[in-house]
Write a protein that binds this DNA or RNA. Structure first.
Lengths: 211, 211
DNA sequence: TGTCAATGTTGACAGTGACTAGATCTTCTA
DNA sequence: TAGAAGATCTAGTCACTGTCAACATTGACA
């Protein structure tokens, strides 16, 4: 009969300002689980994210998360929603700070893309982890689409400036902008190109006069 | 006392032309384990790759792989070496088939990059799985560097054609070529851009006359 | 022939996701 | 306001995982 007051492995020190939880029910376990999971991702990485560790960090039993996330995939999906929202914010903030001409906006969005990946490598991995997310979840789908709308938005003026007329050409440019931003961010977080600065696609595409 | 002849779960039917293995020792277990692992990756995906399943497929006990691969990371590292070799072959074959002008060579290498990822999605994921490979392994390091030498090689003539003089500019173009090829392949295997064709970076970079 | 290293097996352990049954709390209604 | 119903949590269990230790078998070599 183990005492419930014995400190469990990996348990966090009790925080005073947490929602009072001397009671049987937690109060806001779903949010606490997500916070615990984000903390684990940040400090230990994606491979260390387990339901039981998350439960322990939130000071509940190992089966408690099941009432909020039926399985690990559901938890990861909820985390990915948060991640895509932050991802969008990162790109929006970078665009906001930058000048509004097409090339600078493309640069800014790419920088936002990269700085999110740099600041949240585990979350970035999670977002693009094959088969580990439930893309039929509407909130995930929406958050994901919102993120990539940034890339569509910044590409259109550049396509104009490059004189691209057909839908096909313009979509190809979108894929190129997205691919190069994503590729660099992914390779960068994988340890390749660690010291290098991101390639400036817009400068290569535009006539030399631009800088 | 379980009979060793009872068919185990996930076991393969006995192949006649396999190295005879009525004996205690397998003969070439290391190769058999790698073959079993590649088969699992192809049929079930990266998440299904476990040491015990690999051992069962090779018809040995669950602990036998430890004598050839001290841990899962070592097995995955050995698989990544094979993967990078095939990856190089894919790019080399595509370059061989293509015309030798700079733009076409860049296109060809990118196509080789992509067709490898398309044909071996699980292996492609494995190669760029953070923290799951032992990059201090010399054979992995060598295989990886050989792969990316292709990208350096194809970029140089394009850099000449674009009139890039400084080392800095030329390396930036390398990063751009690599990033866009990698980004598209990664997004593609992740289910994004599923139907789309890869963006043709070289065509965007060169003056319009080229096609 | 005897020894020993390489290579296999068996058994065990802690950690994992998932499931079930039951305890406890909250909320809603009669 | 009582009590029923549902939501939320705990405890226990299962199959599966990677890893380790102890032991069996084989073959090569002194």
């Amino acid at each position: 009969m183990p005492s419930p007051n014995l400190p469990l492995k990996g348990e966090e020190p009790r925080q005073k300002h947490m929602p009072k939880k001397a009671s049987y029910h937690h109060g806001n376990l779903r949010a606490a689980l997500l916070a615990a999971a984000l903390d684990i991702l940040e400090t230990e990485g994606l491979h260390a994210l387990t339901l039981r560790k998350v439960a322990a960090k939130a000071r509940v039993s190992h089966a408690a998360p099941a009432h909020h996330f039926p399985n690990l995939k559901a938890l990861q999906t909820a985390l990915a929603v948060i991640a895509f929202e932050r991802f969008s914010e990162s790109m929006a903030a970078a665009r906001e700070r930058a000048k509004k001409d097409p090339a600078t906006q493309v640069r800014a969005a790419s920088d936002g893309y990269l700085s999110f990946a740099r600041a949240n490598p585990a979350l970035f991995r999670l977002m693009f982890q094959e088969n580990q997310l439930d893309w039929s979840d509407p909130s995930l789908k929406q958050a994901g689409e919102a993120s990539f709308r940034h890339l569509v938005e910044i590409t259109a003026p550049l396509a104009d400036q490059l004189g691209l007329k057909t839908q096909q050409e313009r979509q190809e440019l979108e894929r190129l902008v997205w691919s190069s931003a994503h590729g660099f961010a992914h390779l960068h977080t994988d340890g390749k190109m660690e010291t290098a600065s991101p390639p400036d696609l817009a400068r290569f595409l535009l006539p030399r006069k631009t800088k």
